[in-house]
Design a protein around this nucleic acid. Structure first.
Lengths: 123, 123
DNA sequence: GTTGTATTCAACCAGTTAGTTGAGAAGGAG
DNA sequence: CTCCTTCTCAACTAACTGGTTGAATACAAC
């Protein structure tokens, strides 16, 4: 895996167990032990999962005696959403442009606006 | 890696090279060779990357003689966006509720609406 | 101080991944 | 038919992942 944050965030969420933990942290903070409870893997394995989430910046840990309450850092989601939206939108615009070209080829365009050419549609 | 689609999509995008390919496919379809060109890895390696994207449903391939033009399937992005938005929103609501509780503890609430209690704020 | 609880560290293992090279397969062009 | 291009399959390797167990740390409670 690459070491940039976006890669780490995507990689962290590629595991269903970790996504499940994020889901549970969305309803409220929880300690490592509490998070480990529902799964039949060792606490150490869960601790590792949390470390991955933490390295990705998705989760922060505080201290309460021996406990390590985990807190979801939801702002990191924006990093992904921005990346996704950028290319989703770009692709969508391209389809719309393509549709416009196809419509023009079919002669579908409304002749009410004679100057309304598609800008750069064929580039 | 788990075999559900959401996991495959996240895993596919956890690699910067693959994200870069998605970015390029967002501006227009491209063959395997065209996609391979900018990178100094073998064409076979790129072919494998495309297979990962394809298995995740992010990319589809068609046939043009020996060429395999790749096309971005942007709808799959929605799968991720939905998952992310769900938990981001849930976490955000929790913070807002917490803010409301804190405000109430400080006596910040406007006394203009005597019946306006926070519903379930302490649950 | 000793015991118990919560968490992490360290070493190890099996399975996967991202890359390599070499050999096809499939199709257009001379 | 032969050659060249484009792409994939197969086998191999190095590095990473997700899990294990056992030991160590840190703290609270008795």
């Amino acid at each position: 895996m690459a070491d940039d944050q976006l890669s780490r965030v995507f990689a962290a969420l590629a595991d269903p167990t970790r996504r499940d933990m994020v889901a549970r942290l969305a309803v409220g903070d929880a300690t490592v032990g509490e998070l480990a409870d529902p799964y039949d893997v060792s606490v150490q394995a869960v601790s590792k999962h949390i470390r991955v989430l933490s390295d990705a910046g998705l989760v922060s840990k505080s201290k309460d005696a021996q406990r390590r309450p985990c807190h979801l850092e939801a702002e990191v989601f924006d990093l992904m959403t921005k990346w996704i939206e950028r290319y989703r939108q770009q692709a969508q615009e391209r389809y719309e442009r393509l549709d416009a070209v196809l419509a023009e080829m079919r002669g579908d365009e409304q002749p009410t606006h004679p100057g309304n050419r598609e800008q750069g549609a064929a580039s």
